[in-house]
Design a protein around this nucleic acid. Structure first.
Length: 766
RNA sequence: GAACUCGUAGCUCAGUUGGUUAGAGCGCUACAUUGACAUUGUAGAGGCCAGAGGUUCGAGUCCUCUCGAGUUCACCA
């Protein structure tokens, strides 16, 4: 053995050795060692297919690989299923950026062509993530690899959609949705960031209809859609405004009469205690409008511009319109005052930072509290009954909070990169209720109501060049992936397909069961529910919670017994890593310089679930020293063996005693017990810490020193070293396996591979 | 406004159901060393475990409050 461990000489070779033996595949492992029927399974959180890895990926790979390797060695039927995610909005966003560089936009393509382009783009990069995960030592079963857009996965996802729809849990309705006019899609509540901003609060005077010289004043941050407003609200019990209820005021822009109604949502203390209602563009107003059956009139379109209904303001952007409206009101002397330092959280797009425009859109929603199948209730129960245990400081409470406040999930996205919602709308008789945008044969973008479009264009031409359609909620549709057969309906012969795709999370939420169902026969029964879901705490509501909802729906059982939430990786000073700060760590650079084992151990040692962890070069360096320490302890074991051949124990110098052996074995056993216990409890960081100090400060500093003076027998030395190799293997797989191969050559061990060897048992130290 | 988390050595963090002199890595000081390893060893300095109460035979660990830091959710026209 070389006197120092050089990771570059070993890592690739060792990974190939494991792959040669197919040691990651549970079906092969059964042939390599004894395996019990008890299973252990982890579904890998699929990284974006086209993204290079960051240090967060290295964290999850390390933690999950530790558990997987440990359980494989225990003899559990162990599988780790890898995959990648198409990451709808993220990927399309990146791709559109690329298009812009070429001076193009998504509107230059019909949906199908754009989808194909993105597909090719993702294919180009799809190998990167996988290669990098392998470099990190992941012992995942690559023969079971899945991509979220694999045909068999898509089949399953669509099947779930159909079932949900048939059970009434999916419905189509016009709701106010969070719409980003720049990204051109709606979002769920989770994709919206609240950002504190200083905005202006305008106090607008409304004349009373009965006495136009008397005014009531209403405070608003959004004067621009006033022309749409038909109603005003006050709190029913507010003494100041009670007398207004039932009276009428005049719209300061249009002069139309507006009824004043009462609703408890009004906060008497805020502003003047009087609110104008703009149901089509404000979430609260929308709810109130539904309750009181008020008209919901849209005045802002998906481009963020005022629609024709806005008369003189038509075509203005929201901000332009605001300016103009305020100017007009000022001219009429209807602005009482403008408060300029009003600080309020504004909804912004998590992706581009634009202000979110609430728009009424017909969308598909998943009912999370359906009377016949209340998914939220089931999820809460699973947590309460500890069928799913959340590890990570306080996150059980957080999850419960999310569940208790969850709204129906908007699963429609107006983007191309994803799974198209399998719906076709009936055309005949509904031509006026469907709008479509498409690229004509002459590659011109044409947009309008279908009845008009069909006068100039054939339906085939429209469908061929289709970019987006919107059908009113009462347009009948059927679920179908392909164009429905003519016999599918009595009322129509012509169909037009939905262009919206599913929220990426809708397919990710099904990941545990779709990966198992579409893999080898019996996998679902064998590995579901999975043992541990390991992921970052930041995607608890996005992913973990939703996997529980759909897992419970589809499989009737929680998808995972434990959720291990890891924290963020921070830099040496404990600061968040970011590209702009330039303090982010490229895991592959670390791997090159210090070795994969060092990276893994540094990320894991003394980490705690749910708690952020700060790492830097000082940690990588320290852990690189550990790999060398292991290597050299092993080297000593071999050299000592040689020494004893020429320098027999019978030299008379022996201080070795029976009592010492007993003590040694007892300590070794205790180490095994402690580390095993901590691993079983998923205290991974603590177990790593214990292992480190026991190995370095007990085994190396005490036992090896004893062995030098013949105070410890070679037999015990070897047993100790072999035991520590096994204990270390999940954490630092490369150096331990490399040493194991040396030991195998030198007849210290008999099993050819460490990865499939037996975890130490208490009975080994009798 | 609410919830959650954290406050332990110079820095970054562990501390398993409360149990003897509180630990690690990095840093620091002194010394050692040609035979596993300088990617080392030995010894050492450095902590009223944020503060105040309480429970207990016993509290870094459990409870209450205060102060400080962070994260998230909700804040409404």
């Amino acid at each position: 053995m070389e006197s120092n461990y050089n990771h570059t000489n070993h890592e690739e070779k060792i990974y190939k050795l494991w792959e040669k033996h197919d040691a990651f595949n549970p079906d092969t492992v059964k042939k390599l060692r004894t395996v019990r029927s008890k299973s252990f399974s982890i579904i890998m959180p699929p990284p974006n297919a086209n993204d290079p890895l960051h240090v967060g990926h290295a964290t999850f790979v390390s933690l999950e690989d530790i558990l997987i390797r440990y359980h494989r060695m225990l003899g559990d039927d162990t599988v780790w299923i890898p995959g990648t995610d198409h990451a709808g909005i993220e990927t399309q966003f990146v791709f559109e950026k690329k298009l812009r560089k070429d001076k193009k936009s998504r509107f230059d393509y019909d949906s199908n062509s754009l989808y194909k382009l993105i597909w090719e783009y993702v294919q180009e990069n799809s190998g990167i993530a996988v290669d990098q995960i392998k470099k990190l030592g992941a012992s995942a079963d690559w023969s079971r690899f899945k991509f979220t857009l694999d045909p068999e996965i898509v089949d399953e996802v669509l099947e779930t959609f159909t079932e949900l729809h048939n059970d009434g849990l999916i419905y189509r309705d016009v709701q106010l949705v969070n719409y980003c006019t720049k990204c051109g899609t709606s979002y769920s509540e989770l994709e919206v960031d609240k950002v504190d901003q200083n905005v202006k609060l305008y106090y607008v005077k409304y004349p009373l209809a009965s006495d136009p010289k008397t005014f009531i004043t209403i405070a608003t941050t959004r004067p621009e859609p006033i022309f749409l407003d038909t109603h005003i609200a006050v709190h029913p019990k507010d003494k100041k405004t009670k007398k207004l209820i039932g009276k009428k005021a005049l719209n300061p822009l249009t002069g139309a009469e507006m009824e004043i109604i009462a609703d408890e949502f009004v906060e008497p203390e805020f502003g003047t205690g009087i609110v104008k209602l703009t149901p089509a563009h404000d979430f609260n107003d929308f709810i109130v409008a539904k309750k009181h059956d008020l008209p919901i009139i849209q005045g802002i379109n998906r481009q963020g511009k005022i629609m024709d209904i806005g008369g003189k303001y038509a075509g203005f952007t929201v901000l332009q319109a605001r300016e103009q409206v305020v100017k007009d009101l000022e001219e009429k002397n209807l602005i009482e005052k403008i408060e300029t330092k009003y600080n309020t959280p504004v909804d912004t797009c998590y992706r581009c930072g634009r202000i979110i425009e609430p728009l009424p859109l017909p969308q598909f929603f998943l009912s999370v509290r359906h009377t016949k199948n209340n998914l939220v209730e089931q999820a809460l129960k699973v947590v309460e009954d500890q069928k799913t245990v959340i590890l990570g400081a306080g996150y059980t409470t957080v999850l419960n909070h999310w569940l208790n406040n969850l709204r129906d999930w908007n699963i429609s996205r107006q983007i191309v990169w994803g799974i198209t919602i399998p719906v076709w709308y009936e055309i005949d008789g509904n031509e006026d209720k469907i709008t479509a945008g498409f690229l004509s044969k002459k590659k011109q973008y044409i947009n309008g109501i279908l009845s008009e479009l069909l006068k100039e264009h054939k339906l085939e031409e429209i469908i061929d060049g289709l970019q987006q359609i919107t059908a009113e909620p009462d347009v009948p549709y059927i679920l179908s992936r392909e164009k429905p057969a003519k016999s599918a309906s009595k009322t129509t012969k012509n169909w037009i397909p939905e262009t919206d795709t599913f929220d990426t999370w809708f397919s990710s939420a099904q990941w545990p069961f779709v990966t198992l169902k579409t893999n080898k026969k019996g996998d679902f029964k064998r590995f579901y529910p999975t043992s541990v879901m390991e992921t970052g705490y930041d995607i608890l509501p996005f992913w973990v919670m939703r996997m529980m909802l759909l897992g419970l729906y589809k499989a009737g059982e929680t998808p995972f017994a434990h959720v291990y939430l890891h924290g963020l990786v921070r830099d040496e000073k404990g600061q968040k890593m970011s590209k702009s700060k330039g303090n982010s760590i490229d895991p592959l650079e670390v791997t090159k310089e210090f070795g994969t084992d060092a990276l893994r151990m540094a990320l894991v040692i003394r980490s705690t679930a749910g708690q952020d962890k700060s790492v830097g070069n000082r940690d990588f360096k320290g852990m690189k020293h550990l790999t060398n320490k292991l290597w050299n302890a092993a080297r000593f074991t071999l050299m000592n063996k040689e020494r004893l051949k020429t320098e027999p124990i019978a030299s008379g110098k022996i201080t070795y005693q029976k009592g010492q052996e007993k003590h040694f074995k007892k300590q070794l056993r205790e180490n095994v017990e402690n580390i095993t216990l901590q691993l079983d409890k998923l205290n991974i960081g603590y177990s790593a810490d214990m292992l480190y100090s026991q190995f370095w400060h007990w085994f190396c500093d005490v036992c090896i020193e004893d062995a030098k003076n013949d105070g410890l027998s070679q037999e015990n030395l070897e047993q100790g070293m072999v035991t520590f190799l096994k204990l270390f293997h999940p954490y630092m797989p490369f150096v331990t396996e490399a040493i194991w191969q040396e030991f195998y050559k030198n007849d210290i061990v008999t099993e050819p591979l460490l990865i499939t060897s037996d975890w130490p048992k208490t009975t080994d130290f009798a």
